[in-house]
Design a protein around this nucleic acid. Sequence first.
DNA 1: TTGACATGTAACCAGTTGGTTACCTATATT
DNA 2: AATATAGGTAACCAACTGGTTACATGTCAA
Lengths: 109, 109
Amino acid sequence: MDKGEVLSYKINDVFSALADEHRRNMLVMLSKGSKNVNEIASAFKISRPAVSKHLKILKRSNLVAIKKEGRNRYFSLNPKPVKEVFDWLKFYDKSWDRKLQSLKNYLEK
Amino acid sequence: MDKGEVLSYKINDVFSALADEHRRNMLVMLSKGSKNVNEIASAFKISRPAVSKHLKILKRSNLVAIKKEGRNRYFSLNPKPVKEVFDWLKFYDKSWDRKLQSLKNYLEK
DNA sequence: TTGACATGTAACCAGTTGGTTACCTATATT
DNA sequence: AATATAGGTAACCAACTGGTTACATGTCAA
């Protein structure tokens, strides 16, 4: 019912795309270089059409880009939507700089 | 089918909890102080039971904590799961420090 | 103790998700 | 031209979501 604000346009799609283990693992795969559908599918136990559906959802959220080459479709990572996620999450602390610092400490621990 | 890894336990719930505009707005509300169900519900156009459902999902993801006081239930923000989200997202860039810096620049722009 | 208030739960509905198998199209290969 | 390969689409199913209204429970107040 709620159509969302201008700034957070499509951020729903980004969050729900990330809310699945298979899709997150696909993104991790793609972070090591672009791959075609069969290369991606062979790394998972689900069927290839199921993988196609996941890739469609990742495409919808703009987390991946597609380049056609003959009969292959190469998927690659698009980091831009992640910025939106970070941008939204900053509400969690008004002193954003301090947050980044404590987060950095946390990750380095 | 996939049960998830130890480190990302429940992170699915965090992402899907964040994948709804109403729930994100509830979190923003709570970032300004704890509130009971009616205070939260009165800020939205949906019914109170619908708000209860959203709060249940936020509770499941551990993004909020509940304190009972008489017949009121006060909801407050729990920032811990957000760290898991940041932790997961760091795969996006091996040079995490640089990422934080460019992100900081982006947000300050 | 009677009633009002705060909140959760049940039953229902329509739409979406994540999986399957079967089939179609397009591009290579021989 | 015939066949193999890459990948999308359709039809189906069970489970979950997000909303509703109606009802139940627990606590405060007159």
